[in-house]
């Protein structure tokens, strides 16, 4: 049994300690907002925050998390109120299929935390997530919007 802190709650899981955090979240905890896209840290669909830092959860074994605090996309909007990043996403009508957007939002939220007013170059450097629908233009606009608000 391993204890893990997710979105402010402590969960106990029987998952093998080597299981990637991604699959613990999805299959054991039941938080499916964090998506499987590649499993090799290429696409960023599985991005979560660990102690506030963006991590690709497909590359984080359960036994490496320890007491650190995990935040998933489900943990952003407290009491149903969207965060300013999510609101900017809504205002800019960003998602198409939406599958990569949990990861995009988590990456953007971490970026804005460390760099509140990012330039286009800083956005390019931080946002390496893959979107096959091609929402990049709207993602960029939404990040700038969130930085204003």
């Amino acid at each position: 049994m391993v204890a893990i802190s997710i979105n402010g709650k402590i969960y106990q899981t029987n998952a093998d300690p080597r299981t990637p955090l991604l699959w613990v979240l999805r299959d054991d905890i039941g938080l499916t907002g964090t998506k499987y896209g590649c499993g090799v840290a290429q696409c960023g669909s599985c991005t979560v925050h660990i102690d506030g830092v963006a991590n690709r959860s497909c590359q984080v074994p359960l036994n490496s998390v320890g007491r650190r605090k995990v935040t998933t996309v489900e943990g952003l909007a407290e009491g149903g109120t969207l965060t300013k990043v999510q609101q900017a996403w809504l205002d800019n009508d960003v998602p198409q299929c939406g599958y990569c957007q949990s990861g995009m939002i988590m990456a953007a939220a971490a970026l804005l935390k460390s760099t509140p007013k990012p330039t286009d170059e800083e956005i390019d450097a931080a946002m390496t997530n893959i979107c096959r629908c091609g929402t990049y233009q709207q993602v960029r606009a939404a990040i700038h919007d969130a930085a204003k608000g």
Binding site: G33, L76, S102
Partner: peptide, 21 residues
């Protein structure tokens, strides 16, 4: 007009086939 299917895609609430339980 804005899309009708956006909000749940921002909070992790949207269930895709791969998320079905």
């Amino acid at each position: 007009v804005k899309r009708l299917d956006t909000r749940d895609k921002l909070t992790g609430a949207q269930i895709y086939g791969i998320d079905l339980k």
